[in-house]
Write a protein that binds this DNA or RNA. Structure first.
Lengths: 351, 351
DNA sequence: ATCGAGTGTGGCATCGATGCCACATTTCCC
DNA sequence: GGGAAATGTGGCATCGATGCCACACTCGAT
């Protein structure tokens, strides 16, 4: 039966509504409030008979638990903070989707905050989550201070996608080095020796790992990396396009790898503008597969990070921590990425 | 100063941490708890002198407000429920991003729940939000029961993107009819008279509006709509591809409109498979512009719903309601969509 | 019949912040 | 200078659910 489904009339929208409490249910069922609490929610004992009676009474009067009261009293909460940089980026959206899915299945709620990659916003968000007394937070950190402050206040933290400094928190990472290495090797295998790398940062484990993989693949094949082919840009499609332009104008390259999906947009836009034939004249590959990459012509060769799965892993790990199922030492989960070869990479052009 | 920044040692992760309360701050500042509350948070008066002293004391001992206690006592909350169907769909992600941005600016938090378009999940989510005592919810409804139950419990509701039945709740809509009409007219203007419409539903105002716009444009130009060209499919790229295939096999069309971004993926995939020259042999247009549509070659002509803006409007409207700034009667906000002509639509092929 | 163990339930204090009102103090005006 | 009005602050109860403990009761064994 629906809570308040039997109300005679609907209140005006937003009108203050007196919600039934445990007391009311207790009266209705002819038991004590404590018994109601046990019967409905907590682990304590209640006989099947009482349990049924209480359930019926609760449904009858449209009782809904008050999470605030429960959280306050029991010093716990089923809300989990999720702190990401930008929901409009499919990477973060997929991550959040995976997290949400797993949390929902475990009867937890997701409080999602965007920090736009801004340290100040991130810190504000952390304080808000602290105020909500969430038992755990999943964060794609911008600053090491954020995980730290959360942990210092007794909140479990899982860092997703990257780690900053020695936070000591659990972390779920994609194996960026392995993925980038495999992708680079794929190009080297096609004969490319002058491969441009479009990348925005190497301070975080993410960019650093991808760059390391790029270098490792070269080393494996006794190729020297021409440092001029590592094109630093900023995390923005427009900037990436500009950087791609400069790279193509100033250097001879036969293939380009973009370090993430945003940069790939810029690179592709530039190639489109130049009417470059891909892969005949130039091969293009990207890290971080997102849906549009298989829709463009030719479809892009990419590394799939299994982002949704990454999110699920974050949530699972965090929940296990919260439940105290894990030994104290910090856990590092690595999700293996997967190379997906599509049409945008081909043999090195002759001549 | 950071909360607990001066702790001598970090607790083990997740270790129970005794957080300072208003009482502690009061002792530290030499005032009463009531005064601390007023000085830090509420609207009540406190002299500048006291206010400073209390602030300093709070910072010194690392005090963080407890939202649960505050919400319980003050019967209010700054968490807003957002109930959408699928975060992995850029439409919903953008909507959520717009909502979150606006909420955050107003110091509210977003509790985001996916319902996967499933009525049962949606109802569970509604009950959870009820339990959290959120003052308002923004929902892309699956069932009319969901807005209703929320409102019956005194929660403000804003329906986003679509409305179901007579919910009586505020609603923020894209003007689907106008957008579809303009898009269809664009094609008719190019000489197309046999335009296929790929659409998944017409029960909701969304699909119904787009279909109505499609028909209206035809009527405006004294064209009859061949009902065989309205191809119903399900909300899934694979199904849309299959339906596109059937449509192209069974009917003569010179242009296709897909009613949303997901269906567009399917349509495009099919055209790619057939190596159809767009727009030379066939024009393709889509409703609901998302980033990949300008990356494909040729870029897709679309209707931009200004989705992020739609989200911002939802949040603004809801907040205004919560603050009691609006007259009681229900408000309908329409966000004008915008036709964006790109390369995928062209003159009707000769012959 | 008596005792002890074992079972269900109820009573009561409590989580932390705040609303409300009373009261002490200052300010102002006739 | 006396009283009213204004101005700060403190006391206390309270929001709703639950943890903890006590207690009434059943039942089997002696």
């Amino acid at each position: 039966m629906n809570p308040r489904g039997q109300q005679a009339r609907s209140p005006r929208p937003g009108e203050a509504v007196r919600r039934p409490t445990v007391q009311d249910v207790a009266r209705e069922a002819g038991v004590s409030p404590s018994t109601v609490s046990r019967a409905l929610h907590t682990r304590g004992y209640a006989s099947p008979d009482v349990r049924d009676r209480v359930r019926a009474a609760a449904a009858k009067i449209g009782y809904v638990l008050d999470h605030n009261a429960r959280n306050l009293r029991s010093r716990s909460s089923t809300s989990i903070g999720v702190l990401i940089s930008d929901l409009r980026n499919p990477f973060y959206a997929d991550l959040a989707a995976g997290i949400e899915e797993e949390l929902r299945a475990a009867e937890y709620q997701m409080v999602l905050v965007n920090d736009n990659g801004d340290p100040a916003e991130e810190m504000r968000a952390a304080e808000t989550l602290l105020a909500m007394r969430v038992p755990g937070v999943i964060v794609t950190p911008v600053t090491a201070a954020c995980p730290r402050i959360l942990q210092d206040n007794g909140v479990h933290v899982v860092c997703a996608d990257r780690e900053l400094g020695r936070s000591g928190s659990d972390v779920v990472l994609s194996d960026n080095k392995a993925g980038a290495r495999e992708l680079t090797e794929h190009l080297i295998g096609l004969g490319h020796t002058r491969i441009g790398l479009l990348i925005d940062e190497t301070k975080w484990s993410t960019g650093a790992g991808r760059l390391a993989g790029f270098r490792a693949a070269h080393a494996d094949h006794d190729l020297e990396v021409d440092e001029n082919l590592i094109a630093f840009t900023s995390f923005d499609a427009g900037a990436a396009q500009e950087t791609t332009r400069r790279l193509l104008n100033e250097q001879h390259v036969t293939a380009i790898i973009s370090a993430n999906n945003v940069l790939a947009q810029g690179a592709l836009a530039e190639l489109k503008e130049r009417r470059t034939k891909v892969p005949r004249e130039l091969s293009l590959a990207a890290y971080d597969d997102v849906p549009w990459m298989s829709l463009v012509q030719p479809a892009l060769t990419t590394v799939d990070q299994h982002t949704v799965d990454l999110g699920r892993n974050c949530a699972r790990l965090l929940l296990a921590r919260i439940r105290g199922e894990l030994p104290p030492r910090r856990r590092i989960v690595r999700v293996a990425p997967q190379l997906i070869v599509r049409g945008s990479t081909g043999p090195v052009p002759k001549g």
